Simulated assay, not measured.
Amino acid sequence: MTGFDVARYLGLWHEIAVIPNRFQEDCAAGTTATYGLAEDIVGITVFNSCLEEDGGRSDADGRARFAGPSDEGALEVAFVSLLGFWLWPLSGDYIVFALDPEYRWTAIGHPSREYGWILAREERLAPDDLKLIASRFEDAGYDTCALLMSPRAMGDPRTPLCELH
């Protein structure tokens, strides 16, 4: 994707749907990601947070850096640091492959298609937006049944995205 504007991307995003993964297995509801400009490196701060089943919070601090030109939305994201140095060899690829022109929602994936997220500025998206995003995931080769809607509150169902359109 070209035209990615990091300044517009910064701030709070709510997870709308996710392909379940091991590094978020403790998240039961209310998952968010907050991006900011990093002062210690050229890049982006990443702060992920969610509610756990027991009602506690799980937080993860990380850093992201561009994996190519900054207008392409391809990032490496690291959540492991040692003595203040981010361990980039342990980072994951994070590709913004669809983005609302107004930066209201984004579709993010990984080259393996084993990971994927729908993030939005608001806690919910309109059905038409979800249909459009589902088509973007399909066009990118993802199984939309693997994307599960993220619970906003404890006990909310984790409906597959494919069942909503």
Rank of each mutant, 00 (worst) to 15 (best):
R22G: 10
R113V: 04
I19L: 11
G11R: 05
V46H: 04
L10Y: 11
E122T: 14
E52G: 01
R65W: 00
G155R: 11
T106R: 02
F23E: 14
E52R: 15
D5W: 06
S49Y: 04
W117K: 02
T32W: 03
E163Q: 14
T32D: 09
L130Y: 09
I133K: 05
P69R: 15
R57S: 12
G155W: 11
A67R: 05
G141Y: 00
G3E: 09
Y35D: 04
L164K: 12
A60K: 09
R136C: 10
D93M: 13
F47H: 15
V77C: 02
T2S: 14
V18T: 05
F66M: 00
E39A: 14
V46M: 03
G55V: 09
G92Q: 00
R22V: 14
N48S: 07
A64D: 12
D54T: 14
I95G: 10
S58V: 12
L51E: 14
I16W: 04
F47I: 11
A140V: 06
G55W: 07
D71S: 05
A29I: 08
W88T: 09
G11M: 07
A60R: 12
G43Y: 06
R63H: 08
R63Q: 14
T31K: 08
K131V: 06
E72S: 14
C162K: 01
C145D: 09
A64R: 08
E52F: 03
W105I: 08
D128Y: 00
A74G: 00
G92K: 08
L87P: 04
G56S: 15
E102H: 09
C145Y: 04
W117S: 07
